[in-house]
Design a binder for these strands. Structure first.
Lengths: 208, 208
DNA sequence: CGTAATATTGAACCGAATCAACTACCGTGG
DNA sequence: CCACGGTAGTTGATTCGGTTCAATATTACG
């Protein structure tokens, strides 16, 4: 979005913290590469991953001056540091920020449906479909002619997936095992999952 | 936000539909009075209320050109119809839209924690605390000297509350009955609930 | 006052959590 | 290269919170 010459890019290792909830929100970022996980903690340690951001998304926007959740890199991640003042003055940039925020809101709406109304199996299927762009959404292309399989790389631990889906690691594991048993997926590595048929996975998401 | 002379205000009766999910997002609104409930449906009829908006909030902002959820008035509600073109040109207005969107995102983050990680009792307590501004949040004033009770008016049916909290009507009812039994609240009318002690309700929200 | 809609309560059931054991994987160093 | 230890993931048995189904009570309203 901005010319690379005038902006600074910072690298984060897998699981490295970008900022903590309640810290002063002094910096804003744009994801250049990798992903960022936003999460909140309850006092007793329960954790909920509230959003997962990837290339092009903005991280660390705050209304109150304090970050409203913590942020952690998923995989090797590079973030461009943005200048708040530059944005405030530029109508064009503001429009871009606007679109990013709206996109977050739509995603958060979907996630509320998942957390409030979907079964464990539907949540895991929905999670897997995140990694298949253009499928399972409006204007879904339908099953590709011929082979409709695909390998998705999660780059998240079972604990992170569970905290994102509002489940426990055991439940996530059980659902994946069950999908494997039924031939819907096969687990090539812990975080490399082959969807035997994208369409079949999609039918398990609960949206149909 | 805008001068009343040049803008149109539309009134909606309780439970009247403002727009439907997937309709063309041709209009944007600002809540003048009352509230608006945003919800999504799954194909089998499961419903999740994803957000509840009140005075000053914007309704019907869309990224895709289609509304991403349905909107329904809660109580007698008045909405100001906004002109999209007017906003796009005005940096000052954009900043306001921006702040509104950020506020939605923070609320949606909180709601994800509620839906993903809180017990039924914690969800209902959190819901009741929504109606007590300035308490149970950062910089909470603490219990008022003397009487710390308060009557809150829900203006929503048990079904709507349940769909907002990701529960069933029976569970909502049971939790409220249990709180009543323990003297935390008293139900003066179905939608008029007296919190005997705001502080005690707050302690049940799970955030402490 | 009578009726329909909404809310409460009870009993049985079920899905996911919990607790506990076991297994696979990964990196390190002998 | 393989043995070792630690971490992450799986699987099983049991428990528990919330749902479901059914009956009753209450409220709103003509």
């Amino acid at each position: 979005m901005r010319s690379a010459a005038t902006t600074r890019v910072q690298s984060f290792a897998n699981h490295e913290t970008v900022f903590h909830e309640d810290d002063a929100a002094d910096r804003m970022f744009e994801v250049v590469e990798g992903s960022v996980m936003l999460f909140r903690l309850l006092a007793d340690g329960r954790r909920q991953v509230v959003d997962i951001l990837s290339a092009g998304d903005l991280v660390g926007i705050s209304l109150t001056g304090l970050y409203d959740c913590s942020a952690e890199a998923i995989g090797e991640t590079r973030l461009r540091i943005l200048d708040r003042r530059q944005i405030d003055g530029d109508a064009e940039l503001q429009l871009h920020v606007n679109r990013c925020l709206m996109s977050r809101i739509e995603t958060l709406h979907s996630h509320a449906v998942l957390l409030g109304r979907k079964s464990a199996a539907e949540r895991v299927a929905s999670f897997l479909m995140r990694f298949v762009p253009g499928r399972g959404v409006v204007g879904c292309a339908g099953p590709a002619e011929g082979d409709d399989s695909r390998v998705v790389v999660l780059r998240m631990t079972r604990q992170e997936i569970a905290d994102y889906l509002g489940l426990t690691i055991e439940t996530v594991s059980r659902v994946l095992s069950d999908m494997k048993r039924r031939g819907v997926i096969s687990i090539e590595k812990n975080d490399h999952i082959r969807l035997a048929s994208i369409c079949r996975v999609c039918k398990l998401t609960g949206i149909h």
